[in-house]
Simulated scan of single mutants.
Amino acid sequence: MEQTTLKQLLEKGPVLAPCVYDCLSARITERAGFQAMCLSGGELAASYCGLPDIGLVSLQELADAVSRISASCSLPMIVDIDTGFGNELNVIHTCRKIAKAGAMAVHMEDQTFPKRCGHLQGKEVIPLEDYLGKIRAAAYALKDTDCLLIARTDAYNILGKEAAIERATASVEAGAHITLVEGTETLESIEEIGRRVPGWKMFGMASAGASPKVTYKQLVDWGYNLITVHCAQWGAIKGMEEFSRTCLETGSDIFITEMDGVDNRPIALFNMFGLQEWMELGRRFSPKINAAKEFETKS
Rank of each mutant, 00 (worst) to 15 (best):
T94Y: 10
L24V: 13
P287N: 10
A236L: 13
S211I: 02
N90V: 06
M202V: 03
D263F: 11
S74A: 13
P198E: 00
G122R: 04
E192F: 09
T228R: 03
L120R: 07
I78M: 12
A232M: 13
K143N: 14
T29G: 05
P266G: 02
F85W: 08
N290D: 06
Q233I: 02
F243C: 13
V220I: 15
G175N: 10
I54A: 04
D22T: 02
A208I: 01
M108C: 11
P76G: 02
S189T: 10
A45Q: 11
R195V: 02
Y216L: 10
C247A: 15
G160W: 07
I69A: 01
S58W: 04
S72I: 08
T257K: 14
L56Y: 08
A151D: 03
E88Q: 13
P212A: 01
C23V: 08
Q233W: 13
L132E: 03
K143F: 12
V66E: 08
I227L: 14
E2C: 03
E43I: 03
F270D: 12
A99V: 05
R167V: 01
M37I: 15
E109Y: 15
D144N: 15
A71K: 14
R265L: 02
S47L: 12
C19T: 01
A291D: 13
G199K: 07
L120T: 00
Q233V: 06
L269G: 01
N264H: 09
N290Y: 03
L16E: 00
E294I: 11
